[in-house]
Design a protein around this nucleic acid. Structure first.
Length: 837
DNA sequence: TGATCCCGCCAACGT
DNA sequence: ACGTTGGCGGGATCA
């Protein structure tokens, strides 16, 4: 098509270098970027500076965690250094940004740094595309890429032209639940298997046709091409927006995410994803170019998702060779329970439905309006109404606070600083912001009793409220993650609990606090859900909060943070979990017998709740290693082997709830370590989580026998007082209930022999760590998922404790090292050793 | 090389 | 008409 394209773009060009590019005529192609250099390049000096700074600043780095980022950063840094040598500071600023510096992932990071993960509803955060583009020095086009993906996750919603509202991760769990559901409806799992199968079968030559076939053959038929999945609260703000065929990015992004959510090892290769996505769209032709284009888009999406830390790049080694793939590192959703639960979550469904909404269909329907008929707006009138009402309500609630854009706060902070600050990357800003907020938050927190915090869960959020309810508004500040936390995700994502199957409960887990404690080790712990107790209140988790600490650990862990955060976390939890808890409650009621706990149920408000929580769960240290979930999953397949492990990581069920250290303390949990299990809690570190389940008691007995560890746990818990004496916690409830891998194991992997490799990124990470920065943050090393042996893990776990404070020291190695060692454990065939996140 | 994926043309939409 | 969105794919970079 275009023959000539790219006119030179301003920036780049200004340089003579362009020689190649002749204005005008060029038939060609993108002007090669001027190679670095030279002086005078206009390229936003500031931007460069910013980058530099960011790169340089350890703190920042720590926040950023992402390996990619880190990589990039480091590289950039190096490059800069070189340049510096040659050029004077200013000059070097000008130097041209390398391709990496301009990557969408990095850009996304910067973008995310501008906002808090969990903005208080009260203060609405508005995003002005123009401003953002300008501030980040990028073309608007790029911002669209980011925003579109965020929109698919409902992290932002469009308000109007050029304006978006930032919601952060508040809706993330719901969105994921909804997506998962839809993905299940679409039978993506099957489709994936099919594709893989075919691949094996035929060495594939004709991809095209085959794919088509595939697509048609299964699944998709019905399909509907769904359009965009919406969440209850936010759907249509700008109705107008929907118009354009919401074709790609948004929808594609959702589908891509769905693939992760439904696949067992939560790993999806680009190839497979592209095929499935294409298939759905149009079964028709799949030519190569189309495939290529799809892949390109997927990379764009993947970059954004990676920045959000929802996925991470890995390589799957199959017979044919290495294939690029991504692994889900986001929050684990609980297995869906059928229906019901989600309802709440999602959808549009108005209240009436509440309970049992048959859900899927409805939801999906709502969510994905079938394309056809209705107006574009996805909302049928009814729904619409409801929604609008909700929105209004929400707004009202939130209203009080002025919608201040975050930036405002940022600005304030900045203002205080010297001009230089201004240049800091968003991230930095973010930090500052966070700090200041933090202070505030802290105060607030203090006021509250610790207990409350911990307990609060139940009471709090009545689900009905939309996210931004009054409650939220009250403590908005808390909610926000500290600046500290990297925007990203938290590594830890807690699990979101949906519902569990049988009676499940969840437990909580916690994690060490590193933050303040910083102690060296803060390994993060993870508890698994236990079936046993019924807990009432629990909360979902939200991950992020915790994270702050973790960060580096990356993925998986859950870290706790400082108290401050804890609160926030708690809050969030509450919110998110609301649904679940409610459900649980219901169940529990039914069960009544169990009950002891029951009392807490809904009412909850009482503080007691806190007490309640504990009873049930036990902790399993995922150890850093675990990181859990993800790692686990991946292995899962392979691993079917160790049941234990399974449990540990993967348990789908498991929800992890991060608890702030502070909370724990409140509880009075002593620190203890259970070696066998690897459980270790430090007082600080732990948090307790309530377990939902109901059935627990009953079942527990049985299960308990299973693992030795369970006994230990029980003992411990009892000892600690978390659980009543009589009660026992089963060891891996999860296993029992969860089918988990069961199914496809063979099949699925059949195709995959996959070995995952973490990319080098990991390595980089480590390096970063070394340089390191902030102390607390890093907490957990990520563990290689692969590790199959629990024990080892354990060991590492213990080892971890480097020393307190370790972090700060650049030697980081100390810290890093330890972790690394962990990684080593698992060493797969390749570079993994480092795996870190 | 193949894997990534930046860049920006230009069409679809909105206003 | 003009501005906003964002599909799309060439081809530069990276690994």
């Amino acid at each position: 098509r275009s023959v000539l394209r790219t006119p030179l773009k301003q920036g780049a060009t200004s340089h003579p270098v362009l020689t190649e590019v002749q204005p005008g005529c060029q038939p060609l192609t993108t002007p090669p970027k001027p190679k670095e250099i030279l002086p005078a390049d206009p390229w936003t000096p500031t931007s460069n500076l910013k980058m530099l700074i960011s790169a340089a600043s350890p703190e920042i780095r720590s926040r950023e965690q992402r390996r990619e980022l880190s990589n990039t950063t480091r590289e950039v840094l190096q490059a800069k250094h070189c340049l510096q040598e040659h050029l004077s500071g200013d000059e070097y600023e000008k130097s041209q940004p390398s391709r990496k510096e301009k990557s969408l992932g990095l850009l996304c990071h910067k973008f995310l740094a501008r906002y808090t993960d969990y903005p208080s509803t009260a203060e609405d955060n508005y995003i002005c595309l123009d401003e953002v583009a300008e501030e980040l020095n990028v073309e608007r086009r790029r911002i669209y890429d980011i925003v579109n993906v965020l929109e698919s996750l409902h992290m932002v919603s469009r308000l109007a032209k050029n304006r978006y509202a930032w919601h952060g991760r508040h809706n993330l769990s719901k969105t994921l639940q909804a997506l998962k559901r839809v993905g299940e409806e679409n039978k993506y799992t099957q489709q994936i298997q099919m594709i893989k199968k075919r691949e094996y079968e035929h060495e594939f030559d004709l991809d095209g046709e085959r794919n088509e076939e595939t697509a048609r053959s299964f699944g998709s038929n019905d399909h509907s091409e769904m359009s965009f999945v919406e969440l209850p609260g936010m759907e249509f703000r700008a109705a107008s927006v929907n118009s354009r065929k919401d074709k790609s990015l948004r929808v594609m992004s959702q589908k891509f995410v769905m693939l992760f959510l439904v696949s067992t090892p939560k790993i999806v290769s680009l190839e497979v994803a592209a095929k499935i996505l294409i298939g759905e769209d149009q079964l028709e032709d799949l030519d190569k170019s189309k495939f290529k284009t799809k892949i390109r888009r997927l990379y764009d999406i993947a970059n954004v998702l990676s920045s959000l830390e929802l996925i991470k790049k890995v390589h799957v080694t199959e017979e044919r060779g290495r294939k690029p793939a991504f692994k889900w590192t986001g929050p684990e959703l609980l297995p869906n329970i059928q229906d019901t639960k989600l309802e709440a979550t999602s959808m549009t469904c108005p209240p009436p439905i509440s309970e049992s909404i048959p859900s899927k269909e409805q939801c999906s329907k709502n969510l994905f309006p079938s394309k056809g008929k209705q107006n574009f707006t996805r909302h049928p009138s009814l729904i619409k109404l409801v929604k609008s009402i909700e929105n209004d309500r929400r707004k009202i609630q939130s209203a009080p606070t002025s919608p201040v854009k975050i930036s405002a706060s940022t600005d304030q902070n900045l203002s205080a600083f010297p001009s230089k600050m201004a240049q800091l990357p968003a991230i930095a800003k973010h930090q500052l912001e966070g700090q200041s907020k933090k202070a505030t938050e802290v105060k607030m927190k203090l006021s509250r009793s610790a207990l409350e915090c911990s307990l609060s869960s139940p009471e709090v959020v009545p689900k009905p409220e939309p996210p931004g309810t009054a409650a939220a508004s009250q403590q908005p500040a808390l909610t926000q993650p500290l600046g500290v936390c990297p925007p990203s995700h938290s590594s830890v994502s807690p699990v979101i609990l949906p519902h569990t199957p049988p009676g499940v409960s969840y437990a909580i887990y916690l994690h060490p606090s590193q933050a303040h404690a910083v102690t060296a080790y803060s390994p993060s712990l993870m508890l698994q859900p236990l079936p046993c107790a019924n807990v009432t209140g629990f909360k979902g988790i939200n991950s992020k909060v915790l994270n702050k600490i973790t960060t580096e650990g990356g993925d998986n862990q859950i870290a706790t943070d400082d108290p401050t955060k804890s609160l926030a976390a708690k809050e969030r939890l509450t919110t998110k979990s609301e649904t679940s808890s409610q459900r649980c409650l219901k169940r529990s009621q039914a069960l009544q017998e169990n009950n002891s706990i029951k009392r807490y149920r809904s009412d909850e408000e009482s503080l007691d709740t806190s007490l309640t929580f504990f009873p049930s769960g036990y902790l399993i240290p995922l150890t850093q290693c675990t990181h859990g979930n993800k790692a686990g999953f991946s292995n899962k397949e392979k691993a079917g082997i160790c049941s234990l492990q399974h449990t540990t990581y993967s348990s789908p069920i498991a929800g992890v709830i991060p608890v702030p250290a502070s909370e724990l303390k409140a509880v009075n949990i002593p620190a203890f370590h259970v070696t066998p299990l690897n459980i270790m809690l430090s007082p600080t570190s732990l948090a307790a989580a309530p377990v939902l389940s109901n059935s627990c008691l009953n079942s527990s007995n049985t299960s308990s026998a299973q693992s030795p560890s369970s006994s230990v746990l029980n003992f411990t818990l009892q000892h600690v007082g978390l659980i009543p004496t009589g009660v026992q916690v089963p060891a891996n409830p999860v296993l029992q209930h969860v089918p988990v891998s069961s199914q496809p194991k063979n099949i699925s992997h059949g195709s995959e022999n996959t070995n995952l490799q973490e990319d080098k990124v990991d390595k980089n990470l480590l390096q970063l760590l070394d340089h390191g920065g902030m102390s607390g943050k890093y907490s957990a090393p990520s563990v290689p998922k692969e590790s199959q042996e629990p024990q080892r893990v354990t060991e590492n776990f213990f080892r971890t404790p480097g020393g307190p404070n370790t972090v700060s020291s650049p030697s980081a190695n100390s810290d890093g090292t330890n972790r690394i060692s962990q990684g080593t454990l698992y060493i797969p065939q390749r570079k993994l050793e480092v795996s870190e996140d």
